[in-house]
Amino acid sequence: MATSKVTVQFPCPVEQVWQTVTDLAHTAWRSDLAWVEVLDETHFVEHTKSGYATNFTVTDCKALRHWAFTMENGNMSGSWEGIFEAAEGGTRLTCTETVNAKRWWMRPVVPGYLKRQQKLYLDDLRRELLRHS
């Protein structure tokens, strides 16, 4: 199991960060995704540009404060949690992601992959938020 926790600051209101992160109908800002399929209020599927699908189940949603879900695909299972806090000059977002590789030979590469994916997501998010500031 690999866990990555990152805290970042954004120079915009918590409402804007929350709306951007949780709006599954508008994900064009995500450079790794082709599209998101919303199945119902707690289930969605992310489809990467390479055609890989990951299933998500929302486990907690407290507007403007906390969003958490489990995720699973053919290679891994895990969880993600976002804590949204108003901070001086904007918003503090703490993301914690835990991933379990399903194949033993993938376990050594998971920590690096996880950090790269988190960095890509947060870089994309920052670009999108600044574009609308």
Rank of each mutant, 00 (worst) to 15 (best):
residue 86 A to L: 03
residue 67 W to K: 09
residue 84 F to P: 01
residue 61 C to F: 13
residue 68 A to N: 03
residue 57 T to L: 10
residue 86 A to V: 04
residue 59 T to W: 12
residue 71 M to K: 05
residue 71 M to R: 03
residue 56 F to Q: 09
residue 80 W to P: 02
residue 85 E to W: 00
residue 84 F to M: 07
residue 66 H to P: 01
residue 53 A to F: 11
residue 79 S to V: 04
residue 54 T to W: 00
residue 73 N to D: 15
residue 85 E to V: 01
residue 76 M to E: 03
residue 70 T to A: 02
residue 61 C to N: 14
residue 80 W to I: 03
residue 83 I to V: 07
residue 80 W to N: 07
residue 52 Y to D: 15
residue 82 G to I: 02
residue 84 F to I: 04
residue 50 S to Y: 08
residue 78 G to M: 13
residue 69 F to H: 12
residue 77 S to I: 10
residue 73 N to C: 12
residue 47 H to F: 02
residue 71 M to F: 11
residue 80 W to Q: 05
residue 57 T to V: 11
residue 47 H to N: 07
residue 67 W to F: 08
residue 82 G to H: 08
residue 63 A to W: 06
residue 54 T to V: 14
residue 55 N to Q: 11
residue 79 S to L: 03
residue 64 L to N: 09
residue 54 T to F: 01
residue 74 G to Y: 01
residue 67 W to T: 03
residue 47 H to L: 04
residue 54 T to E: 06
residue 59 T to C: 11
residue 77 S to L: 07
residue 55 N to R: 15
residue 50 S to K: 11
residue 49 K to N: 04
residue 59 T to V: 13
residue 85 E to F: 00
residue 47 H to Q: 05
residue 65 R to E: 01
residue 51 G to I: 02
residue 60 D to E: 09
residue 53 A to M: 10
residue 80 W to V: 09
residue 73 N to K: 06
residue 66 H to E: 11
residue 71 M to S: 04
residue 82 G to K: 01
residue 73 N to Y: 12
residue 52 Y to S: 15
residue 86 A to E: 14
residue 60 D to Y: 01
residue 49 K to R: 15
residue 74 G to T: 07
residue 71 M to H: 06
residue 48 T to R: 00
residue 86 A to M: 07
residue 83 I to E: 00
residue 66 H to G: 05
residue 69 F to N: 08
residue 66 H to Y: 13
residue 49 K to Y: 05
residue 62 K to D: 03
residue 47 H to R: 10
